[in-house]
């Protein structure tokens, strides 16, 4: 395989990992953020700290613990093996699970903040009109916090694309499985293959910049025009 073909493969693996991770993050991050936003217990800060941990912890620390947990000797690894028949460590599934944990705060925090800002007012009004909790979420909460969902998804996606440490620890460097762009870049540099390294680096830099710019553009558009914010402020 040429190094360019290998890089394209790494790109598709990366995009696949980031897309799946983002979907999972929205699915578990939304209820988690909702729960945290409405939590009144004094242990709230503790749970918030746990969610925020990946922001400050070296990714290798997280990766190290996950590696231990995913090994066939550990219980999570064993359970996975019994359920799926394949080993968890050094698999695509492993790097997705690692990414989910690693990018969790990037999804949970903007959502939690949006939910807290929204408050109970509209939800109480909706309940008095006969809307149940699920109905209230989709008819009131989601439309009024759409901008934050876009921000959360984009940040989660971008952060997962840029991940290195966790993948390196638990994924290894298996083409088609766990060899993602950041790892491919590291390989090129180690092999003094600077021209390929330049292509990957510049590519990641520019695409990240474009993604973040569009998030801020969209976010500004939504919150600038967003009637919700205007009303909340008044």
């Amino acid at each position: 395989m040429t190094s360019t073909a290998a890089d394209i493969l790494a790109l598709t693996t990366t995009l696949k990992m980031a897309a799946i991770t983002t979907v999972i993050l929205l699915l578990i991050g939304t209820p988690l953020a909702w729960y945290l936003a409405n939590m009144k217990s004094r242990f709230k800060v503790f749970f918030e700290a746990i969610v925020a941990l990946p922001l400050v912890l070296p990714p290798t620390v997280l990766g190290f613990y996950l590696l231990l947990a995913f090994s066939p000797q550990a219980l999570p690894g064993q359970l996975w093996q019994t359920a799926t028949g394949s080993q968890l460590a050094f698999s695509f599934s492993a790097i997705v699970i690692g990414s989910v944990l690693y990018s969790l705060p990037f999804v949970v925090q903007p959502l939690q903040k949006a939910f807290e800002q929204l408050g109970d007012h509209y939800l109480e009004a909706a309940a008095m009109l006969g809307a149940g909790p699920i109905d209230r979420f989709f008819s009131i909460v989601f439309p009024l916090t759409k901008a934050s969902f876009i921000t959360a998804a984009a940040l989660g996606f971008a952060h997962t694309v840029g991940e290195f440490g966790v993948v390196l620890m638990i994924g290894g460097n298996i083409p088609r499985e766990t060899r993602v762009l950041s790892i491919a870049l590291f390989d090129h540099v180690e092999a003094f293959n600077y021209s390929n390294a330049h292509i990957l680096s510049a590519g990641l830099l520019i695409s990240s910049l474009i993604l973040l710019s569009s998030v801020y553009l969209l976010g500004g558009k939504f919150s600038g025009k967003s009637v919700a914010k205007k009303v909340l402020k008044s």
Partner: peptide
């Protein structure tokens, strides 16, 4: 039904 002091119309 409950009518609040701040009308709480859905802004969207």
């Amino acid at each position: 039904g409950l009518i609040f002091q701040d009308s709480r119309l859905f802004p969207h």
